[in-house]
Design a protein around this nucleic acid. Structure first.
Lengths: 354, 354
DNA sequence: TCTATTAGGTTTAACGTTTAAGTAATTTCA
DNA sequence: TGAAATTACTTAAACGTTAAACCTAATAGA
């Protein structure tokens, strides 16, 4: 009734356990004939190796860990960004001898709960994949000293065994701002994400350098900060538009925040894109379906995940992959951006709405 | 340099390995004093048990498997439904001694690739969680004869060790149709999902029985079928509205399809909800943000996942949980449904659009 | 013909844990 | 006071693999 083991096969074929092990592992020192008999009975008894036993002796588990960060219960996997990245990561594991284990991140560091490193140790996890933007996670500091490779999305950790993949945020935002400038906009605002995310710094840098390159002045009152969510984006936009009403375009550092800007604009009676152009970042599914559909920067999420898998596996195998890989985010122009209407200052429109 | 083991602790404290094991496991036959010394040195050496070794001897891995079905690469984790369910499932594992391993489903059943059962066997997976609607997955048939418990979302399998959680689709759709009827609609169409999904059968049953109960006639030409996607929903709606133009309301069996209906309606010049009321199913994030925001049936995704975890764990522990659990899906009324405008037949509007 | 090599295995040990079966010293209680 | 029970351990075995070391018979090379 219990599972078949190497021993069962060995007894049935009439050889030693080692012979069976070596035959199944493809070592050449087993004769053609015995090998065949071994394979046949293995098939017959539907043998599946016990990976726990193998792990114990080889000290390699074939397990990669996935940690999904985020502060709220709901945030982790349900973020519109995560799914495709994970799909890509998993597909990057196909053909490889690795499986993926998901760990509950976000657990408070109270007594009793384990650090990410400790969780990995127990299961002999060979490498970890970290998603989520919070650089202030209490367990993250440890990771820099990890002895197993760790790859993150959008969160460079500067450790010996840490790697990161992400998009070239600077040049992506640069393209977005250039797009707006080419449409005639000069008063361009930014709704950025929170500072704890390294992408926020990069996107801001892209924003400023683009203004510089395009010869546009930088106005600090056109900078707002939010938490990457719809509600946050809306709030940030509203308090900004109420202070300075002559802006004609907004770059939001995430599509969710851009959708919030859209909501806010509607509330203030501003027509997008006639009165206000809006550009997002991410190209989540929703971006296609908003009205107007969102002009945004497409993050190649699937490829990000796939690249992460490749890097992690290569690092697990003792190779030394690049510590940072940047993919290109492409501008997708949709309906939320348009030429700035020359004669009519947006100011007037806003007043009208009040 | 290598990891600390029970042996290291035993040597340092001066007792046997067994004593250390029993002390750490909380057995009462170790004296208070030795126990304390053991705990202290365990802490000191930062001991983490080797779960592979434990698994080998106890024959319990503490691993639950997650299989995400779907036909396309992109479908699995990125479906707007999956994220919250997985979050709920993971949170259902907190406080339990289980971890979750994700397996690549969707692999072709060619020679060389393993069945779900075999994948579980190798890793000594104790129970599996299956998501995704395809009852025609080539490996699913095997699952009915599984000896480890399997819990599915929305896919009853009728096996000895299979369990399923889902929503009470029949009564949910019933509520949706009643809502439309109360708004004065009598020509109500349904855009259902594909037949391979058991939810499609149930939702259709709810649809028909509601018409019955409300004294409305059932018209087969008001029934269309699609693949749960936006594009599919739009296509199905368009070909239906072009055949029979006097419908005033549509129930779509998923929000994605409902969004497709919205697109289709816009294309035909129909105003939602003035000319056409639309109800979806799922309450995905996008549903709040479409214009108009979608009236829909809220599936408690997080709770579905949590319930699945509870059932699976209880089955793993030898208990006998109910083989089917149905949660309630609540109607969320938003802007996509309205009173049917009496005098003006929708027909006229459609003509006008052409 | 004798030694060295090779082919095709076998034996033994090890991985780190748990559990069953002892055992020696102390305590209980009749 | 002496047998029985209890306390606080230890020893030995097992889980299912892999890997290193060893063995034997046949073959090759000189």
């Amino acid at each position: 009734m219990s599972r078949t083991t190497l021993r069962d096969i060995a007894e049935k074929v009439g050889v030693s356990v080692t012979a069976v092990s070596r035959a199944l592992s493809g070592y050449p020192d087993i004769s053609e004939e015995t090998r065949n008999r071994i394979f046949r009975t293995a098939e017959e008894l539907n043998y599946q190796p016990n990976i726990a036993a193998r792990t114990l002796v080889t000290q390699k588990s074939g397990v990669l860990g996935l940690f999904v960060l985020g502060r709220e219960k709901g945030e982790g996997f349900s973020h519109p960004f995560s799914g495709q990245v994970i799909n890509g990561f998993l597909d990057g594991l196909v053909e490889e001898e690795y499986d993926m284990m998901v760990f509950k991140a976000n657990r408070p560091p109270d007594s009793g709960s384990l650090s990410y490193i400790d969780l990995c140790k127990r299961r002999m996890v060979e490498g970890a994949f970290l998603m989520g933007l919070r650089t202030d996670d209490p367990w993250i500091a440890d990771l820099k000293e990890s002895t197993i490779p760790i790859v993150t999305i959008d969160m460079p950790l500067a450790g010996e065994m840490t790697f990161s993949v992400g998009c070239d945020n600077v040049s992506a935002v640069h393209a977005a701002v250039r797009h707006l400038a080419e449409l005639g906009h000069t008063r361009i605002a930014i709704v950025n994400g929170y500072k704890q995310a390294s992408v926020s710094r990069e996107r801001f840098e892209g924003f400023k350098s683009a203004l510089d390159d395009l010869g546009l002045p930088f106005d600090p009152s056109l900078v707002a900060e939010a938490d990457f969510t719809v509600a946050g984006g809306k709030q940030a936009f509203l308090s900004m538009i109420d202070r300075v009403s002559d802006m004609t375009a907004v770059f939001a550092a995430s599509d969710l925040m851009a959708l919030g800007v859209l909501e806010g604009a509607r509330e203030r009676g501003l027509n997008v894109p006639k009165d206000l152009s809006v550009v997002g970042f991410d190209n989540i599914e929703m971006a296609r379906m908003s009205s107007p559909p969102l002009t945004t920067l497409d993050q190649p999420r699937y490829e990000l995940g796939q690249t992460a898998a490749k890097i992690l596996i290569s690092a697990c195998n003792g190779e030394t992959p690049p510590s940072r890989v940047l993919l290109k985010a492409n501008l997708i122009v949709r309906g939320s951006t348009a030429e700035q209407s020359k004669g009519k200052p947006a100011k007037g429109v806003v007043r009208q709405a009040h």
